[in-house]
Design a protein around this nucleic acid. Structure first.
Lengths: 206, 206
DNA sequence: TTGTGTGAATTAGTTCACAGCA
DNA sequence: TGCTGTGAACTAATTCACACAA
């Protein structure tokens, strides 16, 4: 899907965030070993990752401002990308209240559910529509990504339908893997899995 | 930290969940290629992972019930592991409302915050305490894991303090990496990173 | 046959270590 | 001198391909 390895991509996002924090503390330059310490990895890893970025450091380290810009131009500029949410249950509401307003470039512009009890209102600043209004919504709004917070049993059908309507990128909070064509990207967020993993280590420790 | 590779561990958790669903559909046996399809990976990968599990399949596939038990005994039994949450902001509340009651074996038994406005009440069935009550709470309750949903700037200090109080496993929803001794395990959940990654692919697609 | 279990081969990801530049 | 950039070495993860068992 990409010329940048997945792991590198994740770390580049992380570096950018860490670098932005450093800027706020009015630091101007940074060495690979400093960034490595912040990211909790090795300096060699940092330098290897930065090879994908068109940027030259010097023996005085990297210019932070410039490095952020270079990473951003590799990852694609921060132009606004609209998201819509499906499923206004506990999880959907949780995502809304956590994420709304957090990133101006990644707004959740609408939420959809089939349950009429939850539609028609505004949650955390996000208008909730009935699922049947999706078509007309898509006609008058540009949507870049869909957030899936529906029950696992419903997610495959929903994804098929949304692909049919032209959506190509998904963030899926529902556990089961979905099958999609090669030109569609699905990012999985499996919170329960993270808890289970941690639980495994907690058991081992005693 | 473990004899099971991290990736394998994640997939074993996933297999168990998928197998449990299959049981509910009164399926009794399953082939590696079927499980592979459910998990959206290769059959070879499934068989390789199952080599860590003391279990023998046959040319008729795996017995689902038995395979679940074998995975469970490898991952450790489903005994109850208590969790406590730190930080009752949007994110903390979101985690509570999503996770409370979801897994009987992983209950969130209390939440803590320094802000007196949010403490003293009950959110999603979880009692919220002031941070200063932590010591007495820990004296009378067994806690296996701590969920961290505090601002990034506070997380390192908090972790240091909790390690000092004997907590050894953390699920960290705050972005910045924390530094911990080798005997402590931190599982990171970085939702913003997932959104950023997806956004990268969404940009590439057009 | 047919599908598992697993050595061997391959590919991906990380670290080493050092040349070369400021 | 001290740090970056990067081939080379190494380690982890995945896939291949086939012996073996039912």
């Amino acid at each position: 899907m990409s010329d940048i390895p997945d792991k590198t991509l994740e770390r580049l996002c992380l570096y950018r965030r860490l670098l932005e924090e450093q800027l706020l503390q009015s630091k101007e330059r940074i060495y690979s070993h400093e960034l490595a310490e912040l990211a909790h990895i090795t300096p060699a890893q940092v330098r290897r990752d930065l090879m994908f970025v068109a940027h030259v450091g010097s023996t005085k380290g990297y210019k932070i401002r410039q490095l952020i810009d270079d990473i951003s131009s590799l990852l694609g500029s921060h132009r606004k990308q609209n998201m819509i949410l499906f499923g206004i249950g506990n999880l959907g509401r949780a995502i809304l209240s956590y994420f709304i307003g957090k990133r101006a470039d990644l707004p959740v512009i609408a939420a959809f559910d089939i349950n009429p009890e939850v539609t028609g209102r505004v949650i955390a600043g996000c208008r909730c529509y009935n699922f049947q209004d999706l078509d007309s919504f898509l006609k008058s709004n540009s949507v870049d990504m869909a957030i899936l917070a529906v029950p696992g049993s419903a997610v495959q059908t929903l994804v098929d339908l949304l692909i049919d309507k032209g959506i190509r990128t998904f963030i899926n909070f529902a556990p089961p893997p979905v099958i999609v064509p090669h030109y569609v990207y699905v990012e999985y967020v499996d919170i329960t899995l993270s808890f289970e993993k941690a639980a495994y280590f907690a058991r081992k420790q005693r």
